[in-house]
Design a protein around this nucleic acid. Structure first.
Lengths: 272, 272
DNA sequence: CAGTGGTCTAGACCACGTC
DNA sequence: ACGTGGTCTAGACCACTGG
């Protein structure tokens, strides 16, 4: 988009050309603040400002984008709502820093019957690639037949094999992904997506069903075929709203279970 | 900044009494828009504008409160976020009409495999009372042996028996509840709690497991014993944070499933 | 101290819905 | 045509943080 936005010097010279360039990239009938927001998302995605780093001040952004501070603030407000940015009065506005606990427990909802959270031990049991069938293509908003990477994990909680994951990723968004890079990571998969492929997960959608273990799952989880399992179908979405992961999880809920707290103000989120 | 000047001016013009009432509520060191917001909440609470009715336009509110339109808009923005108001461009701003859909779909997360929401048909199949055992007592924060009302419902979606509920209520909080009052209600159970017993549910906590149908459940849901069911244990909490309902739901997820969307900003809610 | 975000103003023009 | 909310401007002063 406009790689030099925010760098004060670049604006003064060639202002007219810049302005023209900016206006051309504007979408028809799109509010200015949405355009600013998209621009900032793009710049963050390009690594212009790293997590925990400050972005330019509102006044500089106002000058750089050529819009008023009110418009900048509106864009920043939405990015703060989306948890892409954090404001600190008197200090500046910062790209959100994501630590491992955040990702682990923000979207990992399995806990003991007493409600206690447990750190899972993750073991990679399979890594390969395949072509998207109709369902996968629709779920990931890609073309049928497009290349998809598949990761299978076994999660163990306090020595008890509890959960098997089958994770499908659109290969186009994860260029260069390999068994080694997945197996040798230090944090969660979502950290890997973010740090190595610039894909930040901001929203997930989950559907839960009850099912019974097939032969493979029974072997992985050390139960008999026919044992009841919680089947979670999850889609993870990037900042721009596109799905970047489709995940099937099968949970043995004998000692652990899936837990959520819902607030009245969240109504309507159940199905959007 | 002396907001009461604008208020006084408005009063001299004989607008109405709302400003007089609000003026006393002004706190020092509070942003103006927060004051406007509290004022509007109070006026709505007093019934100045009924649900589904329009409130005054932003320009009139600006004049009435003696603040700029930008400040009014900020207060309205937050009230829209809180779902107290709804905006309709070109028509006005309206007090949210809370109909049965609100409660139904705010905490009812079962939908079709295609994501479509369905209105369930509820049939009361049992109503009795019993004494709390240790688990129920702890779950409802009551004494073991205290009286508990039990309601059993069968929910049918598009003619398919899909869900059986066992609902446990602390009798002390639901004095005068009867089979008839539960069966003859027009809306949801949570509406009944709110309207007849002044118990508003603001938060729920859910834990999900996979299980298999016992004989009773199999008969209710028209499946064979051993069929996999989603078992949801729910606690509903009142405004003051005390639990007022313990509910076990058993869901046949053949055609319908449990669905949730989680946002990154919700992190930490999974286990609190 | 200078610079940041937080709040607020007093307008403007536009898109939309209703009459 | 008119009034509504939606967007946007070009400033202002404040509270807070850091050197």
């Amino acid at each position: 988009m406009i790689p030099s936005i925010g760098v004060d010097v670049a604006l003064r010279r060639g202002e007219d050309m810049m302005e023209l360039h900016i206006r051309e990239l504007r979408k028809f009938d799109e509010p200015l603040y949405k355009w600013v927001k998209r621009g900032l998302i793009e710049l963050i995605g390009l690594g212009t400002w790293r997590p925990a780093q400050a972005i330019p001040s509102e006044r500089k952004l106002s000058e750089g984008f050529g819009v008023s501070m009110g418009t900048i603030r509106r864009a920043l407000d939405e990015l703060v709502d989306d948890d892409v940015l954090v404001r600190h009065q008197g200090r500046g506005t910062f790209v959100t820093a994501h630590d491992r606990n955040r990702y682990l427990f923000s979207f990992f909802n399995v806990c003991g019957h007493d409600g206690q959270r447990i750190y899972p031990v993750v073991n990679l049991i399979d890594f390969d690639s395949l072509r998207a069938d109709a369902f996968v293509a629709r779920s990931l908003s890609i073309s049928p037949g497009a290349k998809v990477v598949r990761v299978r994990n076994l999660l163990t909680l306090k020595g008890v094999p509890t959960l098997v994951d089958e994770i499908l990723l659109p290969a186009a968004r994860f260029a260069g992904i390999s068994r080694e890079r997945v197996a040798d990571r230090s944090g969660t998969l979502y950290q890997l997506y973010e740090e190595q492929f610039r894909q930040s997960v901001t929203r997930i959608e989950e559907r839960l069903r009850a099912t019974v273990a097939n032969a493979q799952q029974a072997a992985d989880l050390a139960v008999d075929p026919g044992y009841p399992l919680l089947h979670i179908v999850r889609r993870a979405f990037a900042v721009d709203g596109t799905p970047i992961e489709l995940r099937h999880s099968f949970v043995k809920t004998e000692h652990y279970e899936y837990s959520r707290t819902l607030h009245e103000a969240d109504r309507g989120r159940g199905r959007d």
